[in-house]
């Protein structure tokens, strides 16, 4: 099996990694770069715990090969807060009590950030639709949906 040298940017930092063909982006992040905030919940694109932002779009990192990420700009949960300042989605999910066991939280926050990037003022339905690929077994989603709404408000206020 061949190895591939790839260059990409992760959370603003340039990285060079040698990966095997069958290494998924998720495996590279967790096993090679020790970026373990991104979680493995099913390895089948169903649970969303491994969601990262690839060139601005959320994606299941278990569903893409590392070698396909040559030249990519990647944001993981570790890169969501900037200079010690929480992203509004992080602050809002704390405020609303949308964190319990915390295992789905990284993926949910990436999905939420991506939603607010493309739609700064989502409706309740649009929030649910955007999070349907992020399974959570603890919270019942209600506080998470409320958190995305709060984050949209915070983002709007900060922009004013």
């Amino acid at each position: 099996m061949s190895l591939h040298r790839i260059n990409l940017k992760i959370n603003g930092v340039a990285e060079q990694v040698d990966v095997a063909s069958n290494t998924t982006l998720l495996q590279m992040l967790r096993d090679r770069l020790a970026l373990t905030g991104t979680k493995n919940g099913c390895a089948a694109g169903e649970c969303g715990a491994c969601t990262v932002m690839l060139n601005g779009e959320p994606i299941n990192s278990c569903m893409i090969l590392a070698v396909e990420c040559e030249g990519a700009d990647l944001v993981t949960i570790e890169g969501l807060a900037k200079d010690g300042q929480l992203d509004v989605v992080q602050q809002a999910i704390i405020d609303q009590g949308g964190v319990q066991c915390g295992f789905c939280t990284p993926g949910i926050l990436i999905s939420a950030r991506a939603l607010l990037n493309r739609n700064p003022d989502p409706t309740d339905y649009e929030i649910r639709d955007a999070l349907v690929g992020n399974l959570c077994r603890c919270t019942g989603y209600v506080p998470i949906i409320a958190a995305v709404k709060q984050a949209a408000q915070m983002q709007k206020q900060a922009a004013q």
């Binding site: 373990t36 905030g37 949960i77 570790e78 929480l86 992080q90 704390i94 009590g97 964190v99 915390g102």
Partner: peptide, 17 residues
């Protein structure tokens, strides 16, 4: 929650981490 901050930043350590 006392564990909120580490859980929203990805630094909370789970078994496979």
């Amino acid at each position: 929650r006392i564990d909120a901050l580490e859980k929203v930043t990805g630094s909370a350590v789970f078994g496979d981490d």
